[in-house]
Design a protein around this nucleic acid. Structure first.
Length: 428
RNA sequence: GGAAGAAUGGCUGAGCGGUCGAAAGCGGCGGUCUUGAAAACCGUUGAUGUGAGAGCAUCCUGGGGUUCGAAUCCCUAUUCUUCCGCCA
């Protein structure tokens, strides 16, 4: 949620900023209604003051033996007027709140406007591997090495679902363990979260109401039903919803592992065979709560951490600074870490690091007490994948494949795989 | 799944229709004392909106209702506790 006072004070600035995300908005109607609401509130407060005063007179009159019937009748009339105005306020307020909730976050000033085409690669690590043989795609490798069972996965759960088998399951699990150990070493608290969340989580993270059809609902969608989380971020940024944190508790740093469940309806499935885009994938997610002044530093830390995870595996990737329109609705800035997938000839996102600043904290009311000013302030929330396996896994297979069809396991992963150095074709 | 009880400020906890934004204690902050600290004692200590300010309004889990007036009564949702049942 944006700061309503900023909209009141400088609607043009906000509109211009949102336009960089391709979001056209006119605040005129909103501001009129907002002013109207204030006006009615002023009236109603005066009426309430009168009612309160009258009500206080009732016991006094009774003590003095005066008749209170007239006073009560008059006050009742005021009460009816209050009720009518309160109703008008509630209606306006609902409208205003819905509007506020629908607004995306403002992109940072240094971002380019527009969509993907304006993303900028800001650095790369490693080089595209050169093969002196015809490299295979991860789909071929997975099938030949028996790592992923696409057919039976589809049999169990339909298109976009697969089964990790044997060494494939071990490699997947090794990646997750590797990520978690790295985060623990950096002082992040490891958390395992519920996968079924209530509506408020989606609202607080900024995914709802707009993207409520992108998730799986356990029962029919409603505000009392639960949905399967599309990313651990949805849970992590809601942990302190409605709470006031101590300044000394900040920053809070979390690493949570969950599968991520996404409908991916109308997606690029046909172009993205294999495990590039599925309805369920594993991800370790990092989230930080910081003081506003510290969030830029935290952002760099998160990007650096995600990069290091890929670097230690020795895989080639690039970092893109996203244009305003490619940042998700809740975010002020996002850097993507994109890994090279040889068979596709493109880079695919394995991590998305974002700074939401106070947008999510305003939505879910997460604040801290500023020790200096003694005032309550909104925290900043940031998140970064660390990492998603479903893109990393195929990239690893393809980048680390050998002429004989085997895969060399990166050094950093071996201790999580019982020391295995290579995945070979099964003999049987 | 059934039954009963509970939810109050940073925390513990009193209040059960009018002077209650809410006793008391703890904690926090300021002070006295002390070389310093502790203890003791004194004072102070919620948030939001609005207003230049005095003030006014709102907030006792969320929502709705009764009433001139609700922390207090009623309905409802959520959560917690206890008991019973079922079960990995």
């Amino acid at each position: 949620m944006l700061d309503i006072n900023l909209i009141r004070q400088n609607p043009d600035y906000v509109a211009k900023s949102l336009a960089k995300k391709g979001y056209e908005v006119d605040f005129a109607d909103f501001l009129t209604k907002e002013a109207k609401k204030r006006e009615i509130m002023g009236e109603v407060e005066k009426l309430k003051a009168t009612r309160n005063a009258n009500s206080a007179l009732v016991p006094q009159y009774k003590k003095e033996g005066k008749d209170v019937a007239e006073l009560i009748a008059a006050t009742k009339a005021i009460g009816e007027e209050i009720a009518a105005k309160d109703k008008a306020i509630a209606e306006l307020d609902k409208e205003l709140t819905d509007f506020m909730l629908s607004l995306p976050n403002m992109p940072d000033d240094d971002l380019l406007p527009g969509e993907k085409e304006n993303n900028k690669v800001i650095r790369t690590f490693g080089e595209k591997p050169k093969f002196d043989f015809k490299p295979k795609s991860h789909i071929e490798l997975c099938e030949e090495l028996g790592l992923i069972d696409y057919e039976r996965g589809a049999k169990l759960a339909g298109n976009g679902s697969w089964i990790y088998r044997g060494m494939g399951a071990r490699l997947e699990w090794a990646l997750i363990n590797y990520f978690i150990d790295e985060h623990l070493a950096d002082g992040y608290e490891f958390v395992l979260l519920p996968h079924m969340l209530n509506y408020e989580c989606g609202l607080g993270a900024g995914q709802f109401p707009k993207f409520s059809d992108d998730v799986y609902w356990i029962d029919n969608k409603s505000e009392t039903s639960k949905f399967l989380l599309p990313t651990a971020e949805t849970a992590l940024v809601n942990m302190y919803r409605g709470e006031v944190l101590k300044e000394s508790d900040l920053p809070k740093k979390f690493a949570g592992y969950t599968p991520c469940y996404r409908r991916e309806a109308g997606s690029y499935r046909s172009e993205e065979r294999g495990m590039i885009r599925g309805h369920q994938f594993n991800k370790v997610e990092m989230v930080q709560y910081t003081k506003p002044a510290d969030s830029d530093k935290a952002f760099e830390e998160l990007v650096g951490k995600a990069e290091r995870l890929v670097q230690k595996l020795g895989l080639h990737y690039q970092v893109s600074k996203l244009a305003a329109g490619d940042c998700s609705a809740s975010m002020c800035r996002t850097y993507d870490i994109e890994i090279w997938i040889p068979s596709m000839g493109i880079y695919k996102e394995v991590s998305s690091a974002s700074n939401a600043r106070d947008y999510q904290a305003r939505r879910n009311n997460t604040r801290y007490r500023n020790e200096e000013t003694k005032k309550l302030e909104y925290v900043h929330t940031l998140n970064a994948s660390g990492l998603a396996t479903s893109r990393l896994f195929p990239a690893l297979l393809e980048q680390c494949q050998n002429a004989d069809g085997s895969i060399t396991i990166p050094e950093a992963l071996r201790k999580y795989m019982g020391g295995i150095e290579r995945i070979e074709k099964p003999t049987k």
